[in-house]
Simulated assay, not measured.
Amino acid sequence: MSNNLAFAFGLLGNIVSFLVFLAPVPTFIQIYKKKSTEGFQCVPYVVGLFSAMMWIYYAFLKPNTTLLITINSVGCLIQTIYICFYLFYATKDARMQTLKVLLLLNVVGLGLIVLLTQFLTEGLTRASIVGWICLVFSLCVFVAPLCVVRQVIRTKSVEYMPFLLSFFLTLSAVMWFFYGLLLKDYNIAIPNVLGFGFGVVQMVLYIMYKNAKKVVEEKLPEIQNQIIETKDQKIPELKEQIIDVVKLSAIVRSEIIPGVIPVVVPRLVNDYGVNFDGEKKTMPKNETMEIS
């Protein structure tokens, strides 16, 4: 009975996990339209590829794990497509950074794990060690999308945190938790407990900030009108200041220094284009006004 339930949850896990792998498609459609990966991170896909490869290795060391092999084989293919797509549209710096992480994690890291476990361990010990490694990196798969949480909180925008990915990761965590629990394989069950928690956190953040950008856009015309009104209110004050300067210059001219004194007020007049009649006036730079 438990084996049948485990198979059922494993099958549902395959279906939901497949949807998880497809969840970033809207993100890559957006990248294609913009012809740029600006704001998006490739870390979740690199870590996802590594995790899928590790689970395939683990599945070959354990009996009755065909469902793990099938879904993670599909995952490897899809994650590879995503990474190639990202590299094609990434900037030079982002491309180099992604290639470094890919080389260190998926080539050097995976190669060392396979070699060390094959030559230094055997039987159940090997499966146990590989299982713990899979457990750690499964947590990384769930945590990886959190790398944009700081950006979401700082910008109050969920543009770069896809909701579908968070939702399907949470649902997938539920399915694989019961699959691992029924098979008494806690390397599968344990990371999905935390995965469920991380998924809920991401969805809560999405709900909190999904309308923040819309509110700003709605208030933008009002803010612009306030700026224009403030500028219009300042013009009469500026006019009075210019008149005061001219009057003071006239006093200096008549009472202290005889003759004609150039009064320089170009910055005020140039910047705001206001003459002494309250009308707009264009004055070239460095132009001076004479009081006769």
Rank of each mutant, 00 (worst) to 15 (best):
Ser17Tyr: 09
Val193Leu: 14
Glu222Trp: 01
Phe142Gln: 08
Leu12Met: 11
Lys100Gln: 12
Pro266Gln: 12
Tyr89Gln: 09
Leu49Ile: 06
Ile83Tyr: 04
Ile243Gly: 02
Leu181Pro: 03
Val114Gln: 07
Ser128Gln: 04
Ala250Lys: 02
Ile69Arg: 01
Leu120Gln: 14
Gly13Ala: 02
Lys214Ser: 15
Phe40Cys: 09
Val252Gly: 08
Ile223Lys: 05
Leu194Asn: 02
Cys134Thr: 13
Val152Asn: 08
Val201Ala: 09
Ile29Tyr: 06
Val46Asn: 03
Lys214Asn: 15
Glu240Ala: 07
Ser2Asn: 08
Glu255Gln: 01
Cys76Glu: 02
Met208Tyr: 04
Gln202Ala: 14
Asn225Val: 05
Leu139Glu: 12
Phe163His: 06
Phe119Pro: 00
Leu104Arg: 04
Ile207Glu: 12
Ala250Asn: 10
Phe9Gln: 07
Pro258Ala: 07
Val148Asn: 02
Gln224Val: 11
Ile256Met: 07
Gly123Pro: 04
Tyr32Phe: 06
Asn64Arg: 00
Leu61Asn: 13
Leu220Asn: 13
Asp244Pro: 00
Trp176Ile: 14
Leu205Ile: 02
Ser157Trp: 09
Val16Phe: 06
Gly180His: 03
Leu61Trp: 03
Val143Tyr: 06
Cys147Pro: 01
Ala90Thr: 02
Ile223Asp: 11
Leu102Met: 02
Tyr32Trp: 11
Val252Gln: 08
Cys42Phe: 09
Ala8Trp: 05
Met1Pro: 05
Phe85Asp: 10
Ser157Ala: 12
